[in-house]
């Protein structure tokens, strides 16, 4: 996918990326008392890369979110989720019982740690969702010449 010929669209897309990402982080932090959370924040975060790829060309967007960065992030989010759950288990609570992470029986402290655990889970969800969305877009919009190069590398690896 080439970039658009329109300078205006390219410039606006490039300049609005930080705003979109900042808003995605705001949405992530308001999962409790607003329409937010990991899924929504992740999708909005990924939409910034989609906008970059659409307006400035596939290669420009792929350089902003390269495969060697996104591919490890996919399982990392799941690991964060699982790690917080298992940490609660190790701290003596049930799986994903965030309050147990506090290590104290004071209900006030447990309530605080409940919030921390919840935010940690949301961060894990957001990392996986945004990486998955961006990967889906970039893999599906892959231009033919990049696809040909990938195929050639694969065939050479098969022959070797």
């Amino acid at each position: 996918m080439r970039s658009t010929d329109s300078l205006i669209v390219r410039y606006i897309a490039r300049r609005s990326v930080p705003f979109i990402q900042l808003y995605a982080l705001y949405v992530l932090g308001h999962g409790e008392d607003g329409p937010g959370g990991g899924f929504q924040g992740g999708v909005i975060f990924a939409s910034s890369f989609v906008l970059l790829g659409l307006a400035n060309g596939w290669g420009y967007g792929r350089r902003a979110a390269p495969a060697r960065l996104l591919d490890p992030l996919l399982p990392l989010g799941c690991l964060i989720y699982l790690g917080i759950g298992l940490a609660a288990l190790l701290a003596g609570g049930a799986f994903l019982e965030y309050g147990a992470l506090a290590g104290s029986d004071d209900p006030e402290v447990r309530r605080h740690w409940h919030h921390y655990g919840l935010i940690g889970i949301e961060v894990g969800v957001m990392v996986t969702v945004s990486a998955a969305m961006a990967t889906l877009f970039f893999e599906m919009a892959r231009p033919a010449r990049v696809q040909a190069r990938v195929d050639r590398v694969g065939e050479e690896a098969d022959r070797a």
Binding site: V9, S16, Y23, V50, L54, A55
Partner: peptide
């Protein structure tokens, strides 16, 4: 935000 991305 999403509306703009969709149009583009």
């Amino acid at each position: 935000l999403i509306n703009f991305v969709g149009t583009i």
